[in-house]
């Protein structure tokens, strides 16, 4: 055995390490408070392509290329690539990967995809099935908007609880040889549906799953929030973030300043993104551009990365279904 399973949590006793990571983002994200952290910031969100879908593929390619070149690797050195995005049939990631020729697994976990790909990449690495695995997730505001909501030129107002799909992609290469950041454990999330139907209020729909997964992890690991330097959720934004704090407060647990949300970190208050950022790329880029480098340089001791996803589609929303949420948790430890 290369690890233990306690409850829903996998402990990787056989070490899994972060070889390198990179993030490519759009213009607006580059203008945000984390703008300087990203490896590639687009001058315009088309990335020099003709369609938004091609733009998203280009962004994925750029993030993967940067991650590879930082580790001084070529695509042929990878044993597996795992990734996903928000578009129907996961076309952005598949099409971006089709030229690279490595073994590939396409994933869909809505906005939790970054955590899902890290979790599965770690399982492959810890199990000895992969020495170098690429894990990626992306979203593009324009391609997502036209698929999920309205055409970009449509003059509709967004309610204040709406979130802004990030134009961003993060890519991580996991390896089995000692590096500065270690992936220690992961909790596989369960689906929770608190009965929210308003698809403009994703944060509220996902907050319960974030709370439940965190609680499960603390129980499985016998640890408490105080044991971690930082706890981040993927894209709960202002409303979901407040709700997770309140849900823990009911249990008498204070998360405090260590609890942050990628959707709130990615954009500044003046950027008019309503409640905050969302999309697979939101948590992926904040992890790869901001959090992993801080772990690597020792600024952060450890981190709970909780990728949150709303598992709905425009079709289920039209049919009046409630929005199920999921949250996968990854435990990362920095250099000693």
């Amino acid at each position: 055995m290369t690890g233990r399973r306690v409850g829903d949590t996998l402990f990787f006793d056989e070490p899994v390490w972060v070889e390198s990571c990179a993030a490519a983002v759009g213009k607006k994200e580059g203008e945000g408070p984390l703008g300087a952290c990203f490896d590639y910031v687009a001058k315009e969100n088309r990335f020099g392509e003709k369609t938004w879908e091609k733009a998203e593929r280009r962004m994925i390619e750029l993030a993967c290329q940067h991650a590879l070149s930082k580790a001084d690797l070529t695509p042929s050195a990878l044993d597996c690539a795992l990734g996903g995005d928000l578009l129907n049939q996961c076309v952005s990631t598949s099409f971006a990967m089709r030229g690279l020729g490595m073994p590939y697994l396409g994933l869909y976990g809505a906005c939790s995809t970054m955590a899902e790909s890290l979790l599965l990449g770690a399982v492959l690495t810890a199990g000895g099935w992969s020495r170098k695995a690429l894990c990626a997730a992306s979203s593009h505001f324009c391609s997502a908007e036209r698929q999920y909501r309205y055409p970009l030129e449509y003059g509709g107002q967004r309610p204040p609880c709406a979130q802004w799909t990030a134009t961003a992609c993060g890519a991580v290469i996991l390896c089995d040889a000692p590096r500065r950041v270690r992936l220690r454990a992961a909790t596989v999330g369960r689906i929770f549906d608190p009965g929210i139907t308003d698809s403009a209020n994703m944060g509220a729909a996902m907050a319960q799953s974030a709370y439940e997964t965190l609680r499960t992890f603390f129980r499985d690991s016998g640890t408490a929030p105080e044991d971690y330097a930082c706890i981040v959720t993927g894209d709960l934004a202002a409303i979901g973030h407040t709700m997770v704090n309140e849900l823990f407060a009911r249990d008498g647990v204070t998360l405090g300043g260590r609890y942050q949300d990628c959707g709130l970190l990615l954009y500044g208050k003046e950027q008019d993104v309503h409640a905050g950022g969302s999309g697979c790329g939101c948590s992926a880029a904040v992890l790869c551009g901001h959090l992993l480098p801080r772990l690597a340089c020792g600024e952060l001791k450890n981190l709970l990365f909780c990728g949150t996803g709303a598992l709905m589609s425009p079709l289920t929303a039209n049919q009046g279904e409630t929005i199920p949420g999921i949250c996968h948790l990854i435990v990362l430890e920095g250099a000693k």
Partner: peptide
Amino acid sequence: MKLDRKEYLALSQKASPPSP
């Protein structure tokens, strides 16, 4: 603590700002 849907919805409404 166990959560019921009504309570959760109330929590979500409390956290959601009204349209300006």
